[in-house]
Computed example of a mutant assay.
Amino acid sequence: MPGYKVSRFPNLSAKEKPEYTCSLCEDILNCPMTTPCCLKTFCEDCITKWLQNNTTCPYDRKTLTVDKLYPASSVLVYNLGNLKINCEFWDNGCREVIKLEDLIQHTAICEHNEAKRPKTCDVCYCDKTRDHDCVKALLVAKCSANIEIDFLRKTVTDMESEKDQTMLK
């Protein structure tokens, strides 16, 4: 996966941004890999894709192959992990800002992750959508229930009437 969008890092200063940015995707590094020639760091996916079509480093143009790449320094990985990032479900309503190193765990349990959401509402048991309104759903259900109750009452009354007529004969 390419880097993380810079806009997801609310506390990242303009001064810090170049330290953590992949020059290929221009986003914050994801799975950073370093080149042996110029010691530049790129997202693993970005540099791997680059090297599928090129045989040189994107920075200094020296010969480079995937097997020559190595993981970024532990200091860089540690600092990246401590950056604060907005949850990827920010647009769905999650307002969590977590450490980048905790993002995977948060994403798996985030209540705003629609893939993890129950398909029915726990309150009114109707289909749960982003614009879900329990009150409206319950009113519709109540109307349907009242129609069914009226039908069942009439059926019971008709059956009792038939029973009474049968008993009289």
Rank of each mutant, 00 (worst) to 15 (best):
T34F: 08
D150E: 12
N113V: 10
D91G: 06
N53E: 10
T56W: 03
T56R: 06
L80S: 02
W90Q: 12
L12W: 04
P10N: 11
L29D: 01
C124V: 00
E160M: 07
F89M: 12
E16S: 05
N92F: 07
D67N: 11
K5H: 12
T129K: 04
P10R: 15
C134H: 01
D133Q: 02
T41P: 06
T129H: 00
S161K: 12
L64V: 01
I147N: 15
M167K: 15
L80E: 02
T157W: 02
V123G: 06
D91P: 05
P2T: 07
K99F: 05
L39Q: 13
P71L: 07
R61Q: 03
T166A: 07
F89R: 15
I28H: 07
S74F: 10
N82F: 05
T63W: 01
E111V: 13
R95N: 14
L103G: 05
M159T: 04
D60L: 03
S13E: 04
C38A: 03
A108C: 13
D164S: 13
T63H: 08
R153W: 00
D27H: 15
C124P: 04
A145F: 08
E88H: 15
C110D: 12
L80T: 00
K99R: 11
K142G: 06
D158M: 01
Y20I: 08
T107C: 14
F9V: 04
K49G: 05
T65N: 05
I104Q: 15
C124S: 00
T21N: 11
K116R: 15
R153H: 03
K163S: 02
V75S: 10
P58A: 09
T107M: 14
N146G: 09
V6M: 09
M33Y: 08
C126N: 01
R117T: 06
C31R: 14
K5V: 02
L64N: 02
K119A: 11
Y59I: 00
D133T: 00
T166D: 02
D122Y: 04
N113F: 12
C43R: 10
C124Q: 04
D164H: 14
F89E: 06
